[in-house]
C-alpha cells in the first residue's frame, strides 16, 4: 500500500547546521498493516510523516501510495488517499465552524467540491451515525462550534474526520501526546477500534513505548534519520519495554563508547 524507497532528506544543506533528517530510508507497508514508529526527538519520525503526506519533498527517493507514484504530487492532491491526525488538537479542525460543517469538509476529501450544500438532511443523518461511534454524545451537538469542544473531544473528532472516508493510508502523528492520561487512553482505544473496523493501513508515531507495543502489528525504531530496529508481527508480540530499551542501547552502544565507559 505504501512503498518508500531510498528516501533522503537533508535540511540546511551546505551550512554548519546541516542535518540529515532521513538517511536512505526504505519502508514498505502491506494493506492492513499498522506500524508504530518510536524514536527520540530529532530521529526523523516527523520528517518521515511529512514526506509521506507531501508537506516535504524528499531530496532523493520515491514514495508510492496505492500503486501510484506520489513523490512530486502536492499535499492537497495526495490528501485524496491520506487521512491525517495531528499532535495538536487545534490542528485537525476548524474552530469557528460547527461539528457538522467540519465533517462536511472531511466528507469532501475524496470528492470534488461542488456548489451543493455541504450539510443536507441526508448527510446530517450520516454524520450523526458516524459520530455515535465515538460514544461522546457529539451526535447531539451537531451545531456546536468545534472551538467549544475540549481537547479530547476535538482529537476524537479529528480521528473520525480522518478515517470515515476510508483513506488508503492513515497517518497518526503523536495524536495522543497533548492529552491527559485518561483522554489519551480514550483516543488510543478509539484508534484501535476504528482501525480494526475499517481495516486501515496505519502509520503511527508515538513517544509512548507502551502505546507503541499495545497498538499495531509492526514496530520500527528510528534514530538519526535511519530505521535502526524493526519488529514484525511475531517479534512484536514478544517485545516488552525492557527489551526495546536494551535493543536501543545495544545498537547505540555497539558502534563506540557508552557513557559508562567514558566515565570510568
Amino acid at each position: 500500500m505504501l512503498e518508500m524507497t531510498q528516501i533522503f532528506k537533508v535540511f540546511y544543506e551546505g551550512t554548519p547546521d546541516e542535518k540529515i533528517a532521513l538517511n536512505k530510508v526504505d519502508l514498505s507497508m502491506r494493506p492492513g498493516d499498522f506500524v508504530t514508529v518510536i524514536g527520540s526527538n530529532g530521529a526523523g519520525k516527523s520528517t518521515l510523516m511529512n514526506v509521506i503526506s507531501g508537506k516535504l519533498v524528499p531530496d532523493v527517493g520515491t514514495v508510492m501510495i496505492d500503486g501510484g507514484n506520489m513523490t512530486s504530487l502536492p499535499e492537497h492532491k495526495r490528501a485524496v488517499k491520506i487521512g491525517r491526525v495531528f499532535q495538536d488538537p487545534m490542528a485537525g479542525t476548524a474552530p469557528t465552524m460547527t461539528i457538522e460543517e467540519n465533517l462536511a469538509i472531511a466528507y469532501n476529501r475524496t470528492k470534488k467540491r461542488s456548489l451543493g450544500f455541504g450539510v443536507t438532511k441526508k448527510r446530517r443523518d450520516f454524520y450523526r451515525e458516524k459520530l455515535e461511534m465515538l460514544h461522546l454524545g457529539l451526535e447531539d451537538r451537531l451545531q456546536a462550534k468545534v472551538g467549544l469542544l475540549s481537547g479530547g473531544e476535538r482529537q476524537a473528532l479529528s480521528l473520525l474526520m480522518a478515517t470515515f472516508t476510508d483513506p488508503k493510508i492513515l497517518l497518526l502523528d503523536e495524536h495522543t501526546a497533548a492529552l491527559d492520561p485518561a483522554r489519551a487512553e480514550l483516543i488510543t482505544n478509539l484508534t484501535k477500534e476504528i482501525v480494526r473496523k475499517l481495516g486501515l493501513t496505519t502509520l503511527m508515531v508515538t513517544h509512548n513505548m507502551q502505546q507503541a507495543l499495545d497498538l499495531g502489528n509492526r514496530l520500527i525504531m528510528m534514530d538519526k534519520g535511519q530505521i535502526i530496529f524493526e519488529a514484525d508481527e511475531q517479534e512484536k508480540q514478544e517485545l516488552t519495554i525492557e527489551k526495546l530499551l536494551a535493543e536501543f542501547q545495544k545498537i547505540k552502544g555497539g558502534g563506540g563508547l557508552s557513557d559508562r565507559s567514558l566515565l570510568s
Binding site: S53, E75, H76, K77, A79, V80, I82, R84, F86, M90, A91, G92, T93, A94, P95, T96, M97, E101, N102, A104, I105, A106, N108, R109, T110, R113, G118, M161, A162
Partner: peptide, 19 residues
Amino acid sequence: GLSLRAVGDNEGMVRSFSA
C-alpha cells in the same frame, strides 16, 4: 464555501482534506 471559510480558520486542516 465551507472549505473557503475553513481556509481562513485553519489552512493546514483544509489542505489535509484535499482542498
